[in-house]
Design a protein around this nucleic acid. Sequence first.
DNA 1: CTGAATGGATAGCGGTACTGTCTGCTATCC
DNA 2: GGATAGCAGACAGTACCGCTATCCATTCAG
Lengths: 212, 212
Amino acid sequence: MRVGELAKRSGVPVPTIKYYLREGLLPAGVLTSPNQAHYDEEHLRRLRLVRALVDVGGLSIAAVREVLAAVDTRDDSLHNKLGAVQEAISQPGSVELDPLAVRDVQLFFARHGETECADVAESNVTRMLAAALSAARSVGHDHFEELLDPYLEGMRLIARADLEYIARRGSSDAVIEAMVVGTLIGDAVIKAVRRLAHVQVSREVIGDGFDG
Amino acid sequence: MRVGELAKRSGVPVPTIKYYLREGLLPAGVLTSPNQAHYDEEHLRRLRLVRALVDVGGLSIAAVREVLAAVDTRDDSLHNKLGAVQEAISQPGSVELDPLAVRDVQLFFARHGETECADVAESNVTRMLAAALSAARSVGHDHFEELLDPYLEGMRLIARADLEYIARRGSSDAVIEAMVVGTLIGDAVIKAVRRLAHVQVSREVIGDGFDG
DNA sequence: CTGAATGGATAGCGGTACTGTCTGCTATCC
DNA sequence: GGATAGCAGACAGTACCGCTATCCATTCAG
């Protein structure tokens, strides 16, 4: 198909597709003449993935490019790919880290047998965690780290469902994409579901009111 | 204190503070002369909250304004305030909703006894959920909704910890702020912790490798 | 043959979150 | 009291991001 049809089938305007091509989010089509190119279903699929990452995942164009680079790397273990994707989707945020928050993160990791994370600043994920705890401290929540263990427990439940879901996918390509989708779209779903859980649990604990 | 000290103690540049004042994120100081104003600890606290919402929560200035408006509303139940905060922090995202995804959301809510959400488009939270499932469908994940129930189960665990944490706070003001902080900073923490849970559970399920 | 579409290049636009500059004042220190 | 620094308020300017518009030579579809 040509770019017009790609636009029609994806709902993305032609100039935007051209922009994505320029930015390297979408591989170039196969040129059949100096000014004619062919796109296939794979292009359509990739384009929809880009839109999902941007619209639902809230990623910047640069972050999408990083994620796709990780997805496309052929000579890498699944484990490394997942790590690269996670790094790409965890933007630092430029919060200065409170040493006490850093210590809390280190203790948390040590408590759960993760010894590799000696330097918190090394990974975006740990830095994000430290930044979040720093922010909590800055607004007077000195013991937010108490929530880390319960959060991990809840997340283990969710991670088991995630892995089952991923394992059910067949090919390696599909597994990688499932990880990206599961991680990013999953984050959005989790946010929404958390709201429902708050309402339900508060009803269950306090009664039907929860009106303070 | 004057604006210079406020800047020094918060780490936010003076022009940015002036901008926040203009945008109504920060109440004006008490004027002692036509060009001298006095700020107190409450201003500092509010300023740090704004930065936390922007840096860690990733909120836009407009969203921060909405959240603060909800926090500041005096004549409203805690329940309504939490709802307003949740609406403010769930941006729509302009994804067109797949009717099948909408149906999945409705079924999910019905399954869990939430009857009020007849119209999915009514609330940002449900629209966000439907948008996420629509995006999953668009990239070929037709059964992502299978994850909703496990997600809710994990989130119930987390919600219980959240409510305990909030209940431990004394005054009404502190409770409201704890909700905002717990919800927004909590989302960031949950994202990070989810990465750790993935690593741990995959190790536990597949063995030490998880290399595909 | 003609009119719409295409690839490629480059320039422009609208929104967001600041940042800088100016003016007329005020606080403070010597 | 004079020098210096800081301040409130108004407004213009900046930097970046994610597109969008325009142009050209070419090519495809009817």
